[in-house]
Amino acid sequence: MSETSTAALIHDVRWEIDYRVRLGRAWSRFMRGLRDRKLLASTCDHCDRTYLPPQSYCEACYEPITRWQECEPVGTLRTATIVYQGFDGGPQAPYAVGAIEIDGTHSLLMHFVGGVDLSDVDAARKALRGGVRVRAVWADERTAAITDIAHFAVAPAQP
């Protein structure tokens, strides 16, 4: 006879990993642009889709992309989540993360969303609804990293 155990299985796990990510052509240029306070996007010659973060291949046409634009660092928040459970090495919770469609692009950039009081959950949810306008806030120290943008600030509500 076999024995059946439905006892909860729990493992303690520890991750300790050093790594390096070598960015490709498009992301390297994108990151260096951020260092110079420039938001660079790539545009497909065939379908005119503009990608931010940029891509070296069009995901719709599968064609290589070499055309670039500099975008105004403003866009529309399409969706967001509020993170209440922090993560080792990450920002202090609570913080908000959003998917941002930069004006003139056809893609979404994930980044921190700031300028919203997260202590009032209901008010924060309203402030972070899809469709609100956001603007990049540049970090003072920039090192060609995604955090060269400190966060995207929600524009103050129109009176």
């Binding site: 520890r14 300790e16 050093d18 960015l23 490709g24």
Partner: peptide, 12 residues
Amino acid sequence: PVTIQGHWDFGY
């Protein structure tokens, strides 16, 4: 290319 250094050290 731009290279990003990463370090993960956490338990769960």
